[in-house]
Amino acid sequence: MLNKFVGAELALEPDAQLMLQVRAGDDASFYLLLQKYRCPIVGYLTRMVRNQGVAEELGQEVFLRVYKARASYEPSAKFTTWLYRIASRVALNAIRDRKAESGDRSLDEPASGGQPVQPADSRPTREQELVAEARLAIVRQAIAALPNNQRSAVLMHKYQELDYSQIAAALGCSVSAVKSLLFRAYGTLRSRLEEVAINQYSRQTQVTK
């Protein structure tokens, strides 16, 4: 029995082992988890709520909940699945409560303090940059306009590289529901991007005429 338990402990992924150590009262393990996941979690939340300040507050809330839940933590799923389940709940609650929206800023505002997106520039190299920036702005707007569950699924799939089962566990739905969410969401995003490409193409042909 003891061997079986030890075997199960050894088979655990490193993050789950760290979390079990946090459960046993080892705060240094919590620090390691915080260092490992602060960027991905805040990044995920920033993309969800589109505001860095709000995302950081929500990120603090996520880690507070992780710490508070340490006593009841059971490594039944991957640690990242559990972590993103908490992060998704925090983000979706904040969006529902309109906490995030009250401090919302325009999607056209660059996240890293760069120059705002400008329409066509005469210089060809700059033009390529602007096209790329404009395409990204369109995609960000389209992601922001997705229903909350679709947005969460896309962000976890694309940026956090969670697989279908992990996303399903994080969102509390079935794997087939996740596939359906992703299929619809990516379809919407592809069509938005296609519209931009068509408009871009028509503008270019008008200029060359």
Binding site: Q60, F63, L64, S112, L136, V139
Partner: peptide
């Protein structure tokens, strides 16, 4: 093409006081 565009969306790192705030 969509994934290529989405790859360009980078998010800034959490601020220096993030850990302290936690």
């Amino acid at each position: 093409a969509l994934f290529e565009t989405m790859d360009q969306w980078e998010t800034p790192e959490p601020s220096a006081g993030f850990d302290e705030a936690v």
